[in-house]
Design a protein around this nucleic acid. Structure first.
Lengths: 340, 340
DNA sequence: ATTGGCACTCAAAGGGCAAGACTGCTAAGT
DNA sequence: ACTTAGCAGTCTTGCCCTTTGAGTGCCAAT
């Protein structure tokens, strides 16, 4: 077991290091904090922390720097999440103030979060996992083309243009639409695929091709992988902290370019007691992100999580502030969506 | 007037510098090219080019580097745009192969362009400037909420949820919808605002509030600023070329974060004889992009330009290849859209 | 107009040196 | 058993100096 004072020393090291970006030494620790013991004693504690791999010296005669493990302990036990300042709250009130559609809300959220934290903010579009079909529309938009519109009860709309390859039969389209509506409206998206199997058999053979085209388009829209989409903001903040990324932003930017990677990562993360999931440095499996920390928190609609909001920055980040910012944005998003 | 051979020397300097990233000296020039004259003669030519501010020496005893003005002359007169290799062509054939909706097409285009050039690719969403209203739908999605759907003849769909604040009167909604349709379908988006002025007067007073809400939502959707949207890909390529950006990516990433800046920039650029617009270094007004070159080319639908596709990279880039890649993507996009 | 030759300039790289920051250890004190 | 002062030892950082080499600019000769 690590004695109380040693933990205090770790806390102090993390805080000082986050602030100063300098390896912190025993002398500056006793100057800046009231431990009531001498630098030599602190050095003993530091030796202990080093044995535990919680801190690490870049070289023999340098101060100490927290390891990923050290940050982890800090996040789990030593920090207190600080509430937002009133100035910060106004930022969020603002982005919620006027009613806006989903795109607008998410885009404001991601921008606010990035500005507030000076990190890269990530917002995932709500999954349609539990959504239900609200409306299916088929509209002729040209002689041989149909526009398929699928509206969900979470007010998302998806569309697809279908090239029929033959003239649109308006009467037939109307019939097709009402049959589809009857079969799908009110049903969860996840069940659409099952429900449509065999659908084609209810039609005359000569219409089969057209029906199949429409059904395929519908299935494609419902396919969950199409829903996965994220918004990013504040990439420039990475450049401001370049030194924290071992001098090269390349792997981090690569991970960000590959949104699939981020989506996978977000999906893996489970909120902890604070309502925020934290992956520190090498804890996250993506090689390029070994110098980065990712925070994530789920936001909800109708009581169940529908997507994540997250933050990406160097492991040397202000955990208290950022954790509370991510949590706040998740809450505000939950609220904003419930108003729709 | 600059003599022919001096221009050849400039061409050689640009090509060598692009390839090697080293200031190029007179000796290496005569070694790598067949000028038929000695290094001393080349030095005279270089002195001339320097007088014309076409090249510049980083320091007294270094080789020469093209200035922005030098690149400009190169682009305008000295390069020949090289056609795509067949491998490159297949990349584009691929992204066009299977029919896909607009989002998918643009997203593939931007990714292909960035992979092909190793630069940051930019694709602007088609403007709705000349688009016409194809369908207006009003759908009740909850007791007090309407979903407004606006479809254009370019098959773009926009939606907005309207909170009425009172129970939806289905009959009234149907009437409202048919009146809106009668008034707007087939009309250009730009005229919607005019056509709707006074629209509210055709309704009973007690419905006025609801009508106004719907009209406002519609006007908001039609507002041109909402259409402006871009896709980016390949940001990591900036980090690969970090040295070319005077060591700091910060201003470039900031410009990219501020998509408004990019949109404004793209709007300013007019295609030249090659069908591609080129802004080199300080030619573009954005301060942060003084080390960057932007290429842009318009893509069309029904014969008129609807948006731009572009490329952003260091001024030290392979102009021939990149110009032809941008042009190719613009053409492919034009083709892809005509298939919809 | 071109060329060989040469003096000159300057950045980059490397070595050596001093300063400074910290640690780790030891021996003594509480 | 814990704490502390003191000190030797280590290693980075910054600085200055020198050397090296690439490249120029100019001049006089062709």
């Amino acid at each position: 077991m690590i004695p109380e004072r040693s933990l205090e020393v770790l806390r102090a090291i993390v805080n000082d290091y986050i602030e100063s970006n300098e390896p912190v030494g025993s002398k500056s620790l006793v100057e800046r904090h009231q431990f009531g013991v001498s630098a030599a004693t602190i050095r003993n504690d530091m030796a202990l922390l080093e044995d535990e791999k919680l801190i690490h010296a870049p070289h023999t005669s340098a101060g100490r720097v927290p390891t990923d493990k050290g940050y982890r302990l800090f996040v789990d036990q030593l920090q207190q999440v600080k509430p937002l300042s009133s100035a910060e709250k106004t930022v969020f009130e603002n982005f919620l103030s006027d009613s806006a559609d989903l795109d607008e809300t998410l885009s404001r959220a991601v921008r606010s979060l990035s500005q507030l934290t000076n990190q890269v903010a990530i917002v995932q579009y709500p999954s349609l996992g539990k959504a239900k079909v609200a409306t299916v529309e088929l509209i002729a938009v040209a002689d041989t083309r149909l526009l398929l519109i699928l509206v969900t009860d979470s007010a998302r709309v998806q569309q697809h243009v279908i090239e029929l390859g033959q003239l649109v039969d308006l009467e037939f389209v109307t019939e097709l639409k009402s049959r589809l509506s009857a079969m799908l409206v009110g049903q969860p998206l996840t069940s659409v695929s099952d429900r449509l199997s065999g659908f084609i058999q209810g039609f005359q053979l000569d219409k089969g091709v057209q029906v199949q085209l429409v059904v395929d388009a519908l299935l494609d829209q419902v396919d969950s992988s199409r829903q996965e989409k994220i918004l990013l903001a504040g990439t420039a903040n990475l450049a401001r902290r370049e030194a924290d990324f071992a001098g090269s932003l390349l792997p981090v930017l690569e991970a960000i370019d590959e949104q699939v990677v981020l989506l996978k990562l977000l999906a893996e993360m489970q909120d902890d007691a604070n309502g925020v999931a934290v992956r520190i440095g090498t804890e996250n499996s993506v090689a390029g992100l070994s110098g980065a920390t990712i925070l994530a928190s789920g936001y909800e609609n109708q009581g169940s999580e529908i997507a994540k909001v997250g933050l990406l920055g160097p492991t040397r980040m202000n955990y208290s502030q950022n954790i509370s910012a991510v949590r706040a944005v998740a809450r505000y998003l939950t609220r904003a969506l419930s108003n729709q």
